[in-house]
Amino acid sequence: MKTQIWILGGTGRSGRTIAAHLAQRGLTAVLVGRDAHRLHAAAERTDSETLQVPSLATAVSEIGRQRPAVVINTIGPFTTTAPEVVHACRAVGSHYLDLANDVAALSAAFEMHDAATRAGHTLVTGAGFGVTATESVVVKLCEGRPAPLRVRVDMVPSMAMEEGTAGEALIGTLLGGLAGRRITDGHLAPARILSDAVRLTLPDGSRVTTASMPLGELLAAHRASGARHVLSASSETPASPLIRAMMPAVSTLMRWERLRSFTTRRLARVRVKAKERPREHSWGHAVATWADGETREGWLRLGDAQAYTGAVAAEITSRLLAGQGRPGAYTPAALFGSALAESCGAEYLLPRPGGRGHASDSDPTR
């Protein structure tokens, strides 16, 4: 079998970013997509090869025929695209990874763990900024320690936006986060969306407000820590009191599959304007509290969140090609440990040795 790395949705921003990071590692990607002109332009920019297909179904068939070594899925919504792509990869022994970051998509991926183990292939979900940055801090805080009682994770992205459409992967993730969830007594439970707002002081002195938005970080943090109570939050939440008051009703409507699919398709076509990233750094943040009252807080500092997503996916791909994966379904830090984040250019800011203090002056538990 010829060693190939396929990127489904290779003409999108995530696909191009991953391909560029692979090229920096001396690896050539095959960009898979429908538009020949966009494929050609993206391939020239990232020193990649191309495969034009008219549909995802055709791409799935080609996976079975050409047997690539690794398939990177950037096409959302992942609850729809991932199962058939994973099935095709499992049948021929290809490793699979995606950028999913919603509770439903990660839950579905974890349910495929046993099948992946039996097939001897590795499935990595959540291979992007949000899951990797927050999960890695949790893993770091809990290394060599018993499971904490409570964990809170906060995602604080900063990234430049290029002009174009929002895309179904992003919109699907955001709409998935509208179904309020948290981990209570070890189980996924309903929760009010945008609750538990906290004003965080970042290690660089700037301040942001985060509120509950249960994306994939919730499940990743729970699996990484074993905590009985877990809350995930994001700085990318609506700040308006009116919007916050409306969100419970909106999240209820989004539970209707047909309405959610329709809304995803419509919003995915909305064009966004180019803008610079709002701050120098992106941050992953976690606070873990143990039954004896000890609390530890940690941060992961990195640059542009989109660029970091490309670095994470490329680093995982490189390790899978080197035979460092394990059969089964995993999130990035669960598979490769806390050092993965650092190998992608991030830096930990952790509690002082032997102390109970935090790396910042914020109190995220109040």
Rank of each mutant, 00 (worst) to 15 (best):
S14Q: 10
A19K: 02
A20P: 05
A23V: 00
R25E: 05
A29K: 02
A29W: 12
V30M: 12
G33A: 10
G33N: 12
A36M: 07
A36E: 10
H40Y: 07
H40I: 02
A41N: 09
A42H: 09
A43Y: 09
R45D: 06
S48V: 00
T50R: 03
S55D: 03
T58F: 00
G64M: 07
R67A: 09
R67S: 06
V70S: 03
N73L: 06
N73R: 08
T74G: 01
I75Q: 02
F78A: 01
T81R: 00
A91E: 04
V92K: 07
V103G: 01
V103S: 00
A104T: 12
F110P: 03
E111H: 13
D114E: 14
A116Q: 01
H121I: 03
T122M: 09
F129I: 15
E135W: 02
G144W: 08
R145D: 06
R145P: 06
A147V: 12
L149N: 08
V151Y: 07
M161E: 11
G172C: 06
G186L: 12
G186V: 03
H187R: 15
H187G: 13
A191F: 07
I193H: 01
L194S: 09
S195M: 11
S195E: 14
D196V: 11
A197H: 10
P203C: 04
R207Q: 13
S212W: 05
M213Y: 11
P214C: 08
L215G: 14
L215F: 12
G216F: 10
H222Q: 12
V230Q: 04
L231Q: 09
L231G: 05
S235V: 10
M246G: 12
S251E: 14
R260M: 09
S261C: 11
R265Y: 02
V270L: 13
A274C: 15
K275M: 11
K275V: 13
E276R: 15
R279A: 15
E280R: 14
H281F: 14
H281Q: 07
W283M: 08
G284M: 06
A286F: 05
A286E: 05
D292T: 01
G293E: 05
G293V: 06
A305L: 12
A307T: 13
G310T: 01
A313C: 02
G323A: 05
P327D: 14
G328F: 02
G328A: 06
T331F: 03
P332K: 02
A334G: 09
L335F: 11
L335Q: 12
F336H: 10
A346K: 06
L349A: 09
R352E: 12
R352W: 08
G355Y: 04
R356F: 12
R356A: 14
D361M: 11
